[in-house]
Design a binder for these strands. Structure first.
Length: 391
DNA sequence: AATAAACTCAACCGCACGTCC
DNA sequence: TGGACGTGCGGTTGAGTTTAT
């Protein structure tokens, strides 16, 4: 790959921007719009490299940038998303309207890390600031260039998502995201809340899972190293406050998580979960953690907030969904670009989930997990994200 | 009031990746 | 096919500001 010409060219300004420079940049962007950053230098005479212009625009000049302190909801959401995504600040920022990745990153490094340090003073296990910053302290997906895995352990009745980081210590490896607890040895994930009539403020700003008016339950039953899943979408009924999307009921043998062979040395975002031991009771799920979650998060959840708005269409593609006339995408496994949605033709028919090449049951599983995950109001969740019980 | 320490955050840097030729 | 280039991202820096002594 060729390297871009850096910003270190002679004659280009560096450091803080002046009001005049800001004005020149904004004037240009008003006319030409974003993009073609390198042209700005040529066409305006602004002595800034394109990269610097982009940064200034994205982080400061852009309209609708929210300034000021982060609200509790925002902080909570950041913590949750960081737990899920690690240091993918741009993705996190995408869920917080008006906030930039840089701002969130700074906030994390200062305020949130400080809180964790505060905990450290209370005699909890030492937390390295860098670890906090990188997310490795809580076992989140701190570096998604590394292999990530989700592992499900039937024996303990829980699903634990872990990231296997190349530079992680054994201790790191043991850290896990405390996705819903379960007391059921059949690996039942009771999603914590119903969304009906409860537009939670938590996470509502980002248009993510907040309006999902279904209680999601995920049940998986261990067989022999295979998770069998049957996602079914139950009709909403007035009497049924448990509107639920029951996933992974293990009754449909057509739906199985792929368990590819792994190469230990493979440095890939794709991971295979495998327990610390090879206990056969462990579930191992092939799971493209980075791509799938990021793409899910990239999608506009609000567009999927109401099942009634989702119309299966055959005239575009039998796997395309249309929401109020528009097409929206949750592109998974590289089936199509982000803009092209790939969903089963009939969402409610489980067979389609297994037969459709573009979305598999496990992805549905994760999609629903994510919704509940983000909407959980469990205080312990937040505490856990910091590796602490009390903030 | 002076100074040091701590904190904040805008900006820079290097890298990865996609696109174009 | 591979190099050049543009863009975006995460990590880091350091100037400016605030707080503590």
């Amino acid at each position: 790959m060729g390297r871009k010409p850096g910003c270190s060219k002679d004659g280009l300004n560096k450091g803080a921007w002046t009001p005049l420079e800001d004005k020149m940049l904004m004037d240009y962007l008003k006319i030409h719009g974003e993009g073609k950053w390198s042209n700005i230098v040529k066409e305006t005479g602004l002595k800034r490299c394109g990269k610097s212009c982009r940064l200034r625009w994205m982080n400061y000049l852009r309209p609708n940038i929210k300034r000021g302190n982060f609200s509790e909801d925002e902080e909570d959401l950041i913590i949750r998303l960081h737990k899920l995504l690690g240091n993918r600040w741009s993705l996190i920022a995408g869920r917080l309207p008006g906030r930039t990745d840089n701002e969130i990153k700074n906030y994390w490094h200062t305020t949130i890390a400080k809180k964790a340090q505060h905990r450290q003073l209370r005699g909890q296990p030492k937390v390295d600031r860098k670890q906090i910053a990188s997310g490795s302290q809580n076992g989140a997906a701190s570096n998604l260039k590394n292999q990530s895995t989700i592992e499900s352990q039937c024996t303990t009745g829980m699903v634990a998502a872990t990231t296997t980081l190349q530079e992680n210590t054994a201790q790191d490896h043991q850290d896990s995201i405390a996705i819903p607890k379960s007391t059921n040895s059949d690996l039942q994930l009771d999603m914590p809340k119903t969304y009906e009539n409860e537009p939670s403020s938590k996470g509502s700003q980002n248009g993510a899972a907040s309006n999902f008016k279904n209680q999601s339950t995920i049940e998986s039953q261990c067989t022999t190293g295979v998770v069998a899943a049957t996602p079914t979408l139950q009709e909403n009924t007035a009497q049924d406050h448990q509107d639920s999307i029951a996933m992974a009921q293990s009754t449909n043998s057509n739906l199985q998580y792929d368990i590819p062979k792994t190469n230990e040395n493979e440095s890939s975002s794709k991971g295979l979960a495998s327990g610390e031991d090879d206990n056969s009771s462990n579930i191992m799920m092939y799971y493209d953690y980075m791509e799938d979650f990021s793409k899910i998060l990239d999608s506009d959840f609000t567009k999927f907030s109401d099942v009634h708005d989702i119309i299966s269409t055959d005239h575009h593609s039998n796997n395309t969904i249309e929401v109020n006339g528009d097409h929206h995408g949750v592109s998974i496994n590289g089936c199509k670009s982000r803009e092209t949605a790939e969903f089963p033709g009939k969402l409610v028919e489980s067979d389609h989930w297994s037969s459709n090449k573009c979305i598999q049951a496990d992805q549905g599983f994760d999609f629903m997990s994510l919704l509940s995950f983000l909407d959980s109001t469990d205080d312990e969740w937040t505490a856990d994200a910091l590796g602490t019980k009390v903030l």
